[in-house]
Nucleic acid binder design. Sequence first.
DNA 1: CCTGGAGTTGTCCTA
DNA 2: TTAGGACAACTCCAG
Length: 476
Amino acid sequence: MSSQPLSVVWFRQDLRLTDNPALRAAAARGRLLPIYILDDDNAGEWAMGGASRTWLHRSLDSLDRAFDGRLRLFRGDAARVIEQLAEALPISAVYWNRCYEPWRIERDSRIKKQLGTRGIDVESFNASLLWEPWEISKGDGSPYRVFTPYYQKGCLGAPPPGQPLPAPAPLDCIDDPVPGSVGLSALELLPRLDWHRDMLAHWDIGEDAAAASLEGFCTDTLNQYREGRDFPALQATSRLSPHLHFGEISPRQAWYRAEQAALETGGDGPAHFLRELGWREFSYYLLYHFPALPRQNFNSKFDGFDWLEPDSTALAAWQQGLTGFPIVDAGMRELWQTGYMHNRVRMIVASFLIKNMLLHWHHGENWFWDCLVDADLASNSASWQWCAGSGADAAPYFRIFNPLLQSQKFDPDGEYLARYCPELAALEPKWRHQPSAAGQQRLDAAGLKLGRDYPEPMLDLKTTRERALARFKALS
DNA sequence: CCTGGAGTTGTCCTA
DNA sequence: TTAGGACAACTCCAG
């Protein structure tokens, strides 16, 4: 085995070669040992969900090919894995890009100390955010709690994000066997059952696919983004979220590519897209400054809220897309089939769970965590709290989405409904939104029997709305 | 220091 | 038919 000093680059949520400062720094020192560690030991209850694992499997496979098969994989406590590597190999440096989940911050600072005492050069970099959470604060030094001033004044008033870095070349990786490393299949990221194949058919995964996605979006879609983004039947959103989550592309690449599109084509699409990247930043900012965000109400007034106890039948109906409200069911089935849900529909299904079913936002947060390919601790918890009204800059309690009105407004032709609830496709678009009001003749003509082919509505919108209003009002 | 306007994503009722 | 106001309360920030 070679005794030449090695620089470890530890990949985490930055599964790319381009704009990767840790990789650049490691490559500049000479021989590389690129590693990924599946660390369920430290993740605790926030170990990755099933859909994310499936995505990760593909993404690691893609990154490994970019390294000509020399990406080394490990499983278990990252501190122990790195310790073992440092025992066995002449490692002179360990570099990584920062993560912001509380459990990772705690773990990484531990590892940093541990390596420092060995005299190994350790450094972390920013590769996942446009602005570090500690760089943005109000005049008095405290963190923002409202999005608009955070973004307008805090972010846009701060120095602009760094320009994306090119990928380093050449990549001189060690060939020798590395103790403890395992093959991709040993990570057991794919589910035992075969549901993931259909889901994967909806996605191209990896750094090249992410770049192509961004390029296609900025060329074809971005100028229609402002008007189109609310219509789930259209492909008018970027669908970059899973790529961004796993770091197959960096927010800086997206930011500057969209700015370029703004110069070339003008219009207000790019600014709205940049603002969405701003919301991603805001979620990370909140999680960093309020690490209890995933489990505790941001606004503690909600601690006394009288949620209903989840009846397993009702929760299952929501999860499986069998509520009897087509727009809700279409969204939940899109999630199950593709690992993704259109943003507008995420708000509708969340409002339905929280305000109509009156179940705690944790139930939605947990289900999304398991089912989304873009499941992200910061965005997921910030968004569920926002919908519940307990979060930062949250929806006011009286903002209760009416799934029927939302469906008619944002899927006027019932195209999205028909795609994910095909049993409703034979109804005229007008009645797809509310099959229970279509009348027996139309149902018969469509060969549709409610209760057999599609559920009756599981609740009454008007009374559940009033119930929620009363309980939320009682909080203040 | 105080004051007032404004704030991602809605709905319903009334005139 | 349609437009406007009510539905709270709080944070931020400019003046």
